[in-house]
Design a protein around this nucleic acid. Structure first.
Lengths: 286, 286
DNA sequence: CTTGACCCTCACGTTGCGTGAGGCTGGAGG
DNA sequence: CCTCCAGCCTCACGCAACGTGAGGGTCAAG
């Protein structure tokens, strides 16, 4: 019995620009709702599209009008969305009165816990990787001494990083290094020690550069190096051989095994490269 | 100088089904790489599409063939992807030799930490929400006693949940409840106490059902209830009034304020509903 | 020659909107 | 009455990293 209202005239006069008052309107437009609830207009459009929250009214011009009841629903949506539920779950909770809300929440909590766990592992992996890139080696100084022996200098990784830290090879080395523990490093140290012994024995035995035995040793060095540090081409190996002879620290290492071993090693590497069609005097790193 | 090879014959014979041997092939097919690296074939296709990892070779039939070098790159991709980097970042790290890898990793770690934080907050919100749904009230028994007074029974929320836990109204109540602390509940308790006092005073003053003063009190009750628990329609309010009179606990509460207040309250609610065109004798919840 | 595992290239679907493009609507000021 | 401009509308593509078929070649073995 409200004679002043004619329900057939559907067009609803909305007080829009007069004031951000809202109180006398039959419904709020998307912009007003957006401001109230802190969601974007596009989100409201989206929720309307997928049927999650459609406005009860439209103006004659097609403007969405959200009633108080719509706002209630929107508010519930915002609440559930804020705790990370997917829109389908939210819709189920809001529309299906038999929905097991605490159950859904608990399931969500379990999922969140799982994701936190995965992220934590990921973070730990990142820590290892960062350490590997910066320190080159994920071992304590004591472990390093135990594995690499007394002539090991713990500053070497840092120096190597200083010199080569921006090369692709260092990156690859670091990536591998991140996955290595003491056991793996022990295996590498053993392989290198074996190779060093074999080199010394071969020089003693009078193996000559270019001989099959020498070339086999060169290949073995390339394989050990490749599996220990980074893929080594024959060209790169030549450069390495020159450095072993020229660098005092490396030369001291090899000459410490046998007098003259550094030079002999360089010579068998050169000869091995030549056997593969490479001129060792023009070989370049890369 | 390799006369046995004719580089113009591009077609590469791949040993595919004979054995999962792979050792003699010039390259591995997607399936073989997939098995080796633990990534899907589709991912390899995708990485090829976006130019992240294209195979160096193709057979005459168009099969992708990944060489040893390709495998190196793929392995690096897998490593960086496993620690959560986006493919664009991975590509930058692999292709841009000037890329600041440790920097990128540290940035990623910071992002991960942030996401963990957000998830933790989310989990805490879920805990609150679950508690609110199951206990109805996020207060300790002591807090409840302090806020709601000595006649409060801490078992009431649990009983209410038993009876109404699967209604929309309980869900809405729980959602609100999750955001309420002691202060908010104190405000609610104060508002209810004020209303109770006003009811008692009005009955003392001889206010009659249907009078403007009575109807105003009824509206005030509906507002307080709506803002405290969940939206209350006039129909629902009528049902509530009946329950206040019939339920011994509620009746005791109101009659404890003034003898006969429960009945009087029911009568002013009925009259108020009638003033809005509702027949209180046929009113239904919902 | 057939079979069956494996490969290819489209091309759409996923999640929850962001971000224009292009075009009405409606209150306010001239 | 006209214009201005904020605010509204409906498409429709884009994103991140593939999943999932559809439809159709390829290859080695029986």
């Amino acid at each position: 019995m409200k004679p002043s209202e004619s329900p057939h005239r559907a067009s609803v006069a909305v007080t829009m620009r007069s004031m951000p008052d809202d109180t006398d309107a039959d419904g709020l437009t998307v912009g007003q709702v957006s401001a109230r609830l802190g969601v974007t207009v596009r989100a409201l459009h989206h929720w309307d599209e997928i049927g999650l929250a459609r406005p009860s009214l439209r103006t004659a011009a097609g403007y969405r009008l959200y009633t108080a009841g719509d706002l209630e629903r929107l508010h519930r949506i915002v609440v559930y969305r804020e705790i990370g539920l997917g829109l389908d779950r939210v819709q189920a909770i809001l529309d299906d009165s038999t929905a097991d809300v605490p159950g859904a929440l608990r399931a969500q909590r379990a999922q969140v816990a799982e994701r936190i766990d995965r992220l934590r592992q990921l973070s730990a992996g990142l820590d290892r990787m960062i350490d590997a890139h910066e320190r080159g080696l994920l071992l304590t100084v004591e472990q390093q001494a135990a594995i690499f022996g007394p002539q090991w200098n713990p500053d070497w990784p840092a120096q190597a990083r200083q010199r080569y830290g921006d090369t692709t090879q260092w990156q690859q080395y670091a990536e591998r290094s991140a996955a290595r523990g003491p056991e793996e490093w022990q295996a590498i140290a053993d392989a290198i020690a074996d190779l060093d012994r074999a080199l010394g024995d071969a020089m003693d035995a009078g193996v000559t550069p270019g001989s099959p035995e020498a070339n086999q040793l060169v290949e073995r060095h390339r394989e050990v190096f490749t599996s220990s540090y980074f893929p080594l081409t024959r060209q790169m190996q030549v450069c390495l051989g020159r450095m072993f002879e020229a660098d005092p620290a490396f030369a001291a290492h090899y000459d410490g095994i046998r007098a003259g071993l550094a030079t002999w090693f360089r010579r068998i590497i050169d000869a091995g490269a030549r056997a593969h069609g490479i001129d060792p005097d023009t070989a370049t790193w890369q």
